[in-house]
Design a binder for these strands. Sequence first.
DNA 1: TGGCTGTTTCC
DNA 2: GAAACAGCC
Length: 486
Amino acid sequence: MPADAAPSRPKTVLLWFRKDLRLADNAALATAVDEGAEVIPVYILEPEDAGTGPLGAAQAWWLHHSLEALASSLMHHGSGLVLRRGPASEVLKALISGTGADAVFWNRRYDPPGIAIDKAIKADLTERGLVVRSFAGQILHEPTKLKTGAGGNFRVYTPFWKALEASGEPAEPIPAPARIPSPASPPKSDALEDWALLPTKLNWAKSFEGPWQPGETGAQKRLAAFVQSGLKGYRTRRDFPGEAHVSMLSPHLALGEISPASVWHATRGLSEDYSSEDYIHFRKELVWRDFSYHLLFHFPDLSTRNWSAKFDAFPWRDAPDLLEKWQKGQTGYPIVDAGMRQLWQTGWMHNRVRMIVASFLIKDLLIDWREGERWFRDTLVDADPASNAASWQWVAGSGADAAPFFRIFNPTSQGEKFDPEGVYVRRFVPELKDMPDKFIHKPSEAPLTVLREAGVSLGKTYPLPIVDHGKARDAAMAAFQGLKGE
DNA sequence: TGGCTGTTTCC
DNA sequence: GAAACAGCC
């Protein structure tokens, strides 16, 4: 064989796990195993200044447990997980020289800093004679593959959805390999504990343990449970935060413990008692995640810059005291406070309530949406650079295909509409649990006798509204009108 | 994937 | 006088 013939079948593959912490539907892993290579799975904790952005505290908690789950699962497949920290290019080079690996495989990521890192590594390692291969699977359709009829990039969701639908079903998920061949002496791993991913305020994330099971098994269980029960009635009931009609798959998707294609296909071939209305609407939500990545890919500053430059002149208020009350769930608007406390206690918030609390921060408090984006990034277990940024801009009105700015949620009527009996509010704002339904979303309008009977003392056991929504709405409209004249 | 307000419609 | 509707923000 000529010396310069690149080996098409590598002997030893470094399998670089990133936000794809799963064995099923993992194209990079499946290919390495199929080609008969010995596989060295590695996870690299990249420094924040590498450009991949700071890891939020809630997601760091999740990552810790997810890596434990992945390591354990790999062990059951005859393999193991090598943990290393540092700039990915250096870590990979050290591992290559230490193991004699002749290839590096990974599944592609789509955040712009990650893309830049991967591109440089691919060029460098290829130059050094390694086989470097990357695979798809983190989103349903790669951003470069969907174009408008005119050849441009989508800026409106509905045409994006139609194009995606028209491009056919996503590929069938690939089963997890039965066994993963491992080299005789795999490299040493860091101790996960040394990474200090768990929060030091221990009693904070403690409450995450009830609702969540990080890792691939937890993801699959969550999906099965959702398809079994939550999906029925999804279209109409998904907006009711007191009910269990949303999938809660977002944190699993954020770290790739399950692939979006697996989720898509789980809603196929259902029996007749499933309404197509329900699973089509569910898929549409899944595709918003793709749309967000599409936007981020073509607008890398999505989390820091207004998509619509018109908003650059918006007179945001500097109000750290109000911001803190919002963060702590002490606004005096029960649905807002319930949402913010659900976020703090569980690392997650129901989507309808995310829209309400975001509208409140932006339009009632007139605080820059970037403050909200930052808080969510730090406290959400599902923090995702694309979805989070795109969704905040959507609510702010500055984003692509965004809600018009003048669509200002009334937190009281939203509460009454989507949590009519206050089930959700009572769960997260227990000091209001004995309020009658009629006043559960507007305790400040309740007669004194009603408050006394419910054990509520406004301003003491529960805050008075920190702003008057009617006035706040007028102020927001005025600020927006001012923008138009710019 | 709204809300507000004035107006009409229908008991 | 509530409920539905339209036009506007």
